[in-house]
Design a protein around this nucleic acid. Sequence first.
DNA 1: CCGGGTCAATTCCTTGTGGAACCAATTTTT
DNA 2: AAAAATTGGTTCCACAAGGAATTGACCCGG
Lengths: 209, 209
Amino acid sequence: MREKTAQSLRPQHNDAIWTASPAPSSTSGPAPEDGAEMLNRQRLDAFTHARLWKNPCGFAARFNYLALRYNVPLYGWVKERFDLSRVEFVVIYSLAIQDGVTASEIASSTAFPKNTLSRAVNRLAGLGYVARRPDGDDRRSQILTLTEAGRAVFDEALPRFAGLEQEMLAPLSLVEREMLSMLLAKVVLAMFHGENRAADGSPQPLAEM
Amino acid sequence: MREKTAQSLRPQHNDAIWTASPAPSSTSGPAPEDGAEMLNRQRLDAFTHARLWKNPCGFAARFNYLALRYNVPLYGWVKERFDLSRVEFVVIYSLAIQDGVTASEIASSTAFPKNTLSRAVNRLAGLGYVARRPDGDDRRSQILTLTEAGRAVFDEALPRFAGLEQEMLAPLSLVEREMLSMLLAKVVLAMFHGENRAADGSPQPLAEM
DNA sequence: CCGGGTCAATTCCTTGTGGAACCAATTTTT
DNA sequence: AAAAATTGGTTCCACAAGGAATTGACCCGG
């Protein structure tokens, strides 16, 4: 083990970036409410506050927070509404976005292991949500299609997903959203390219939804 | 099932926001490289491209993408370097950020179920990474502390985590990072408050790291 | 001072997940 | 053209994770 003792946390992280003074843009609050003062309610809040603001990896903490707060309720709902697991719904969602794709394409694009995908596709086929027809070119692979039932599931679920996203974005003005979208796009694209041409053989895992 | 047939995807999502024209800020590329043209390499790229850009929930897709690309390699490394599971390392990380917190505080702040946390803490205690001493006030709970060994783990791991974050943020200029941080902060804070005072009894799950 | 209600922590048990081996179709090598 | 190496998909299996019920501690009202 290394010998880098503490020294790591306290003064190290660049406060300039992560201290979060919401900046003079929005309208809502009257006070200058700077993220630090907004949250002294209980211990838990303090702890959570620390995770988000005193965290040397504050950026990661934030999108992890968002991802969790987004995925947990939605996939929970999917589970109890359609009795579909997360992977299964991801398959439906994927096909809804781009139809006629093969199972392993979804696999490598979503970072779910092949076998998990296989099971999901099998179950979905059994339930009549997706149809698979053999690929003419390659008799191993089968290309997947969303059935009417499958699309119905997607059509019912989409408003929830989109709705929660809108809800999350509610505190931002339109230009702010555009800005945020643009910045995230930049990061994502760079990552995508970077890892995509990383000849390490790493299988470029991607997002789950 | 509802009868809302297709109509959902094509023209619905607000292109103005999600079309991602990286805007005239950075320096690198000579061409106007607009995210759509950058990625026509193979089918997989096309599919992934669709997931990120033709997705009605593009914002969610993006931070899910980021979260995945961030967490998978890092926690994979943690696993093979320290043989610690994700939850276990999250406990260490949490204590490193805020020491002397109780197990269930971590639980409710990280959205991991109590039992999972319990197991993790037990194992960590066994390995000598965390110490637990009974809380004077409440004999049920025990407050957790990072041992020297535990902090050593954190100190070795932190550079990786911070490093990858920096790597992800590399394509952004300093002001862009600050802007992104601020925007995410706004969203996170609003979510935090919203769900925090949502008297639904929902246990306000939070980020994992 | 005693009973319902809550909460921290743990244990039990079922399920889903993902690693590894496997089969078949395919492509590449020589 | 046969053998070797890849690749899409499936099956097997060990294990970890999370739901539900349990124990012990605490808080509260009568």
